[in-house]
């Protein structure tokens, strides 16, 4: 940094330019987020808002068994979705980065991203068609004779939510891991093998640690939005697969209790942030200890 505190002409223009999207984000993101934080300390009686400061919403959200169950389940489902998605995605990213010819890599990435962009609602609904009692999976498995009775553990429960969300977030996990793998200097792998490591130990001791930033990015980008999904739990989750977002929606749109909904949203966000930060910190510690 220069010692001169006055801004150069270019710096001034840069600030002017970036302030356009920044002010937009302030007005439409920071301000509204501030508003729900404020709301969570208020109370509502039908349509009247009582603006006296109170912690009642938080007390109710943290002590009500239904809210605790929903938050616990949401975190558990989001964690499972993240684990399944990232573990399934890693080999694909590895395959595209290491085994596909450079000229065909972008075709593979394009193929992987297409399903992600096509109608989200209908895609989730189709998982219901696939996993249902008389669904595609059951009828074909029965047709081949692999099972006698339809499988019932795959629809209207948390498993169905995990499968469907693992599908929805696949490209979000594959792309960051792919980018990290692409950055790895291939001569490092040769060096490792020249020095006597086997292919497996090279992978574990060189490739995997170097790919970790991508894996961390994938974990965060899957875990955080998953908490807020309410379409999937609603369509395929059944009564025992509902998540906190369904309750937030009910509080806002049905029960007309925006302050409690706001408190639930904030608690969910705090849980997610704490877990995400803990994960990043643990990962740093692990990489440094090596």
């Amino acid at each position: 940094m220069r010692k001169d505190s006055r801004l150069s002409d270019e710096e001034r223009r840069t600030i002017a330019l970036i302030s356009v999207p920044f002010v937009y984000a302030l007005l439409l993101l920071a301000l509204p987020l501030g508003a729900i934080v404020l709301f969570s300390f208020w109370t509502q009686d039908f349509l009247d808002i009582d603006t006296a400061f109170t912690l009642d919403n938080y007390r109710e959200a943290l002590s009500g068994p239904i809210y605790r169950t929903l938050i616990g389940r949401s975190l558990w489902i989001a964690g499972s979705v993240t684990a399944v998605t990232v573990i399934l995605a890693f080999p694909i990213a590895y395959f595209v980065s290491f085994h596909v010819q450079p000229s065909r890599k972008s075709l593979w990435l394009f193929l992987i991203t297409i399903p992600f962009w096509t109608s989200y609602l209908i895609r989730v609904f189709l998982w219901k068609v696939i996993l249902g009692y008389n669904g595609v999976l059951n009828t074909s498995l029965q047709g081949v004779g692999l099972i006698d009775e339809p499988l019932t553990f795959i629809l209207y429960n948390a498993n169905a939510v995990v499968i469907t969300l693992a599908h929805a977030f696949a490209p979000f996990a594959i792309l960051p891991i792919f980018v990290a793998l692409e950055k790895i200097d291939r001569s490092l792998l040769e060096a490792s093998q020249d020095l006597g490591e086997s292919k497996v130990t090279t992978f574990l001791r060189v490739t995997l640690p170097l790919a970790m930033p991508g894996v961390v990015a994938a974990v965060l980008i899957v875990f955080i939005p998953t908490i807020g999904d309410y379409v999937t739990p609603r369509l395929v989750g059944g009564p025992n697969g509902l998540m906190i977002a369904n309750m937030i929606q009910t509080q806002f749109l049905r029960l007309n209790n925006a302050p409690l909904g706001a408190a639930l949203a904030i608690i969910a966000m705090i849980c997610v942030t704490v877990i995400a930060l803990a994960f990043v910190w643990l990962n740093r510690k692990w990489l440094r200890s090596r």
Binding site: I18, P21, F22, A25, L28, L29, A30, P32, L33, A35, I36, F39, L220, I221, I224, P225, T226, I227, G228, D229, Y230, A245, I248, Q249, F252, A258, G261, A262, A265, A268, M269, V272
Partner: peptide, 19 residues
Amino acid sequence: FIMLPLVLPEIIVAVSLLV
């Protein structure tokens, strides 16, 4: 901060704007 909506759950954006 401008990139934040990429990782923010959509329901948070939705309810905060609704409020």
